Simulated assay, not measured.
Amino acid sequence: MSESHPPLRSYGRMKSRPIKPRQAALMNTLLPQIRAPIEPFDPRTLKPDAAEVWLEIGFGGGEHMAAQAARSPEVLILGAEPFLNGVASAVRHVDEQQLSNVRIHDGDVRALLERLPDACLARVFILFPDPWPKARHNKRRLVQPEVIAELARVLKIGGALRFASDWADYIDWTLERFLKSPHFAWPAERADDWRTPPADHITTRYEEKRLGDCAPVFLDLLRK
Rank of each mutant, 00 (worst) to 15 (best):
Val109Pro: 02
Arg110Trp: 09
Leu113Trp: 01
Pro117Gly: 10
Cys120Leu: 06
Val124Arg: 07
Phe125Ser: 04
Ile126Leu: 11
Pro129Tyr: 01
Trp132Ser: 04
Lys134Gly: 01
Arg136Ile: 13
Lys139Glu: 00
Arg140Leu: 02
Arg140Val: 00
Leu142Val: 11
Leu142Ser: 06
Val143Ala: 00
Gln144Ser: 13
Pro145Glu: 01
Pro145Lys: 08
Val147Trp: 03
Ile148Asp: 13
Ile148Val: 14
Ala149Pro: 06
Glu150Asp: 08
Glu150Val: 02
Leu151Gly: 02
Leu151Val: 03
Arg153Phe: 00
Arg153Trp: 00
Lys156His: 08
Ile157Ser: 15
Ile157Leu: 15
Gly158Ser: 04
Ala164Glu: 04
Ala164Trp: 09
Ala164Lys: 04
Asp166Gly: 12
Trp167Met: 01
Ala168Asn: 15
Tyr170Asn: 10
Ile171Gly: 07
Ile171Lys: 12
Ile171Glu: 12
Asp172Ile: 13
Asp172Leu: 15
Thr174Asp: 12
Thr174Cys: 07
Leu175Gly: 09
Arg177Leu: 12
Phe178Tyr: 02
Pro182Gly: 03
His183Leu: 09
Phe184Asp: 03
Trp186Asp: 03
Ala188Ser: 01
Glu189His: 07
Asp193Phe: 00
Trp194Thr: 04
Arg195Leu: 15
Thr196Gly: 07
Pro197Glu: 07
Ala199His: 08
Asp200Lys: 12
His201Pro: 02
Thr203Asp: 12
